[in-house]
Design a protein around this nucleic acid. Sequence first.
DNA 1: GTCAATCTGGAATATTCATTCCAACACTGG
DNA 2: CCAGTGTTGGAATGAATATTCCAGATTGAC
Lengths: 280, 280
Amino acid sequence: MPDTSAKLQPPQDFDALRATILERKGELPKRLTQVAVYALDHPDEIAFGTAASIALSADVQPSTLVRFAQHFGFDGFSGLQLLFRARLRERTSSYEERLRILEQDGAALAESTTIFNGFVAAAHRSIDAIAAAVEPEAFERAVTLLAGADTIYLIAKRRSYPISSYMAYAFGKLKVRCQLVGTSAGIDDDMLAMATARDAAFAVSFSPYASESAAQARSMAARGIPVVSLTDSAFSPLAECSAEWFEVVEADHAGFRSLSASMAFAMALTVSIAEKRRRG
Amino acid sequence: MPDTSAKLQPPQDFDALRATILERKGELPKRLTQVAVYALDHPDEIAFGTAASIALSADVQPSTLVRFAQHFGFDGFSGLQLLFRARLRERTSSYEERLRILEQDGAALAESTTIFNGFVAAAHRSIDAIAAAVEPEAFERAVTLLAGADTIYLIAKRRSYPISSYMAYAFGKLKVRCQLVGTSAGIDDDMLAMATARDAAFAVSFSPYASESAAQARSMAARGIPVVSLTDSAFSPLAECSAEWFEVVEADHAGFRSLSASMAFAMALTVSIAEKRRRG
DNA sequence: GTCAATCTGGAATATTCATTCCAACACTGG
DNA sequence: CCAGTGTTGGAATGAATATTCCAGATTGAC
């Protein structure tokens, strides 16, 4: 029994284990690396699951889990699992602590922490708001409309641009044809001129509205190309020329809005469209 | 078999169980009361322990635990234990409980609605996860580091690009000098070559990692330019070459991840940096 | 291309665990 | 004091689980 790997002292707490794993990740065989990645990325699963269930979702054999544990000096998988459970017990208490701090609001906290907590809270609120504001029927209509289009034109400038750019990326992966409008200067209008009534457009614009986006959406609508839009007010210039439009009010922190809710909406729309196409 | 105690419907979540226990506490026999008290006082023990170990520390027999569970309509002790475990998982996100219901009753709804609800739930979970994962001290260090830089280089490709593009927009509004890397092909490396040790970089990359981003971050680090990064795993190539790095695990819905949490983080970082600069 | 060393998958095994069962016990009402 | 009903402890059981083992596959060196 050449106990080369038998560290007599297995790590005593989760942080030590984590450090050891990261340190030795280079010299690990393939399957053990796979376990290492899974373990650090899904610690909760390790804590709660059984060897069999974890093995399944990490796509390895149960025996590999045992080997992995033994490689780091544990008796078996169970010993390693104990550390993951201990971590969970401690973390929940520290998380509750954090929530308490968040509530009592920090005179004592670093300003960055206050800002961070503020954006986290704002994101939560925004997402709640959009969940309440979007009517399932309207969403379904929008999906049907866009799924039926030959090419989907994505119109967004400035602050909205990250949303359309992410949609363009996702559509690419999902093999849905789309055109991202607003990239390089100049060619936008030429691109839009090629759109036909068999296409459709999705426009995003928040106050203060980029006049260009509104103008482009209007001209599309005038040519019989249906427009779906995401905006932040019923008075938005986009609303009036859209076949369907959705209102998302991103909660702000200190006057700055994040895009968390819009991003969730955009992804839901993107995936729904792809799914509807796939089904015929 | 007088199944007087056989509630056909056992409590479905921890709060319901807790309520039921408290309600019926008076009419419980001695040993079962003992278990009830122990269970509500040491929920974590119930979640992780084995029937034997719990019995030992609650000073009852294992069989009593089973009887206790059955008394409340469960099949056996294991069924009850599941609730305690679920609670521990979901304590991280109080939203999840509410939203899980949204997710699971999708049969009657249009598919697009299910997808939408799924992304809303995933966004909530992601944001909770990042709130728990980001240490205030590390965040403050990252802010200080980036606020002290002459120019902030933003490195991100593909799926991460919307994040850096939004940061670039916000930095522009906030009058913080930055360079967005990854726009047009070719000039990226020339741009990065101009960076000096007085600058800093912020890199974002999620699995599957764009090798370009990692290489650029590494080369920056090698030239003494501090790198802060946002990524989704401790094994990310970004983690090892960063002065500070943050882990955000975006919850996924049907395999697709949105960027809600990353967006909130990015905004918090951006605004914090600007704020720190403004104050000197 | 061959060999040795290491790694991997999956069946076989040993252990641990929850559960059941029954005899002994403690209350309660007559 | 005596049934009768409900409760309790602890051993027996059977299921689930972690662990071990070995043959086959893979990798790396020469």
